[in-house]
């Protein structure tokens, strides 16, 4: 194997520097930057039973080598040499996951306010979600990145207990959540590198975007009634009016009111509450959620647009400014 590598390097070297003959190239091995020095014995992927199992569990294509999977499990805190760690792969994986998650959310909910959109992207591809995904894939962590560790374990330098996670970078350690998320990103990047863009997109759809996220529970309105009236003014609707639909026990200890908020004759939202104000505010919140969570029936993603190019189904003018 080593001789093979040398031979290929020699070929490349002599092609670049035709003035030298091949014997010089062999003696000056460090000159050729493409040759990796031997992988540390700790991380011999062929000796691990966990890696083929993980490969099969994720239904990866045979063209995805075990070696890439092993490399994806080595955090930059475990090895100084970036050629043995997942540093570059996880950067690529971060870009891919971020892109596919945001295009999915933007096409599904084109009116989502910026803050909620960012939070929703984070809920799919943030560290917490991806670390959970890694655990659900059955990735286990090594106690420490020692020499005799199994290549199928996630290797990183653990942050000491009680230390602030914000200081992790400075002391050259990582939290489990961060290391696991980076490993998951690196594995996804491996799919992109070895199986292609289409496969990576499908992998992300199947493993990340298929997870359950209740976007309607991510809104926190500070002044919903005011925001609704600003929205109506902007869109040229009639100003919202709250009207009571039903009530019971007004003079009792536990009254219930059901209030609808109308623009002209159109009911925009309905809410219930223990007081008239509470019911009115809930109705306004429901009306605003109905607006912001609009989802077009036909959804075409920019990444699946063919040669004719992407044409957005719906472009929103932006969130309401109060």
């Amino acid at each position: 194997m080593k001789t093979l590598r040398l031979a290929s390097a020699v070929r490349g070297f002599s092609r670049r520097n035709t003035r030298f003959n091949s014997t010089i190239a062999v003696t000056s091995e460090p000159l050729a930057p493409t040759i990796l020095s031997t992988i540390p014995p700790s991380r011999n992927p062929a000796a691990s039973a966990k890696l083929p199992a993980l490969h099969a569990r994720l239904a990866l294509h045979p063209s995805y080598p075990i070696q890439t999977l092993a490399r994806a499990l080595v955090d930059p805190t475990a090895d100084k040499d970036a050629r043995f760690t997942n540093q570059n792969l996880s950067t690529l994986g971060n870009t891919l996951t971020g892109y596919y998650a945001s295009e999915f959310l933007l096409v599904t909910y084109p009116r989502l306010p910026t803050d909620v959109l960012y939070a929703a992207v984070g809920a799919f591809v943030g560290n917490k979600a991806l670390a959970a995904l890694g655990r659900e894939w059955g990735i286990e962590t090594a106690f420490s990145p020692a020499a005799d560790v199994d290549a199928g374990l996630l290797q990183y330098k653990h942050l000491k207990p009680g230390m602030d996670p914000k200081l992790a970078n400075r002391v050259g350690a990582a939290t489990q959540e961060h290391a696991m998320a980076e490993a998951v990103r690196a594995i996804i990047a491996g799919v992109h590198v070895h199986e292609g863009q289409k496969a990576a997109k499908q992998f992300i759809r199947q493993h990340i975007l298929s997870r359950k996220l209740e976007v309607e529970k991510m809104f926190d309105f500070s002044q919903p009634t005011r925001e609704l009236s600003r929205l109506c003014a902007r869109e040229g609707f009639e100003a919202p009016v709250a009207r009571m639909h039903a009530e019971t026990g007004r003079r009792s200890h536990h009254p219930v009111f059901v209030v609808g908020v109308y623009s002209g004759k159109k009911l925009m939202g309905e809410g219930h509450g223990g007081s008239l104000d509470e019911a009115r505010i809930r109705a306004a919140v429901n009306a605003l959620k109905g607006w912001y969570l609009y989802s077009p029936l036909e959804k075409e993603l920019p990444s699946s647009a063919g040669k004719k190019g992407f044409k957005a189904q719906f472009i929103d003018v932006g969130e309401v400014i109060v």
């Binding site: 994720l58 359950k212 529970k217 809104f219």
Partner: peptide, 20 residues
């Protein structure tokens, strides 16, 4: 800011999409 976001984390649904 009129609308703030509440941070959530997506939940796994094994078998919807991929099965492990």
């Amino acid at each position: 800011m009129p609308v703030n976001a509440i941070r959530l984390v997506s939940k796994s649904q094994n078998g919807v999409g991929a099965f492990v």
